[in-house]
Design a protein around this nucleic acid. Structure first.
Lengths: 136, 136
DNA sequence: ATTGCTGTACTAATACATATAGTACAGTTA
DNA sequence: TAACTGTACTATATGTATTAGTACAGCAAT
């Protein structure tokens, strides 16, 4: 049975990201910040679907992606559990993804009128808690 | 008539962004970096469509967005021209967009294994040429 | 063993966003 | 008048996201 606490996760219709993406991003963040412990069990596919009032298929898809990326371990018949932190991508893939993220970010802040320094300052505040834990 | 130089702009099928977005992002960048001068005329809707081998409607849509955001000025029957730099969004809208961009960026670099400092260093290099001109 | 939970794997239907195709019209200039 | 400009439509095809429903195999407790 193994009851599981609800995830501190909210979906927003205003958010332009698709539901699946909102779920994967949210869970990655919870893991990275340590709000979910390594080894902890996640809500079941059907349970989280009910909590978020979305289709179980949508949750299953999100879980499947996180499993493929190595954030979660699946144990058949048992459930999904937060995996040990590990190297998730090849060096070239890491580099490629960072470059894409920076390009995209640049395109989005272009024309907002902020200076580079203003933006870097904000980024440091926001990124530190995400990246400077050993579960990320 | 007013011939116009081709834009240094390439579309990529590998790029996940829709074509319209690739065009708007690309032109914003060209303007911000000063590769297109303020007051310069842009290629015609049909001309750029031919250059990029996309539908004229797609270019028109991209131009229309840039016009609405104040990057371009439209003169009926004449063409589209790079507008004078100006405040393009309200303060709250600027702040909202920056927050969204930072959130998105954080979600994308999460789990890549970079430290905050490594990322900030890379960002400074990439953002400076985009943001520290007076056409941005 | 049965019951009830777990993840996983399908098919089908619907809605939405994107891009293309084609046509049309008003303003500008040579 | 002719040849350009931007702009505004309708229609169509395609891909993605989501929902709905069904099914099956693994695990644990009664």
């Amino acid at each position: 049975m193994s009851r599981t606490a609800p995830l501190m996760l909210n979906l927003s219709a205003a958010d332009p990201r698709p539901i699946t993406r909102q779920i994967t991003d949210g869970i990655r963040r919870l893991i990275a910040t340590g709000e979910i412990d390594v080894g902890a069990q996640l809500p079941s596919v059907r349970g989280l679907a009910k909590q978020l009032t979305v289709n179980p298929n949508t949750v299953a898809k999100a879980y499947s992606e996180l499993n493929n990326e190595g954030w979660l371990d699946s144990r058949q018949g048992l459930g999904l559990f937060v995996a040990e932190p590990r190297q998730r991508f090849s060096d070239s893939e890491r580099e490629r993804r960072l470059a894409v993220a920076i390009d995209t970010f640049g395109a989005e802040v272009l024309g907002l009128g902020y200076t580079t320094d203003e933006i870097l300052e904000r980024l440091e505040v926001e990124l530190s808690p995400l990246l400077d834990k050993r579960s990320a």
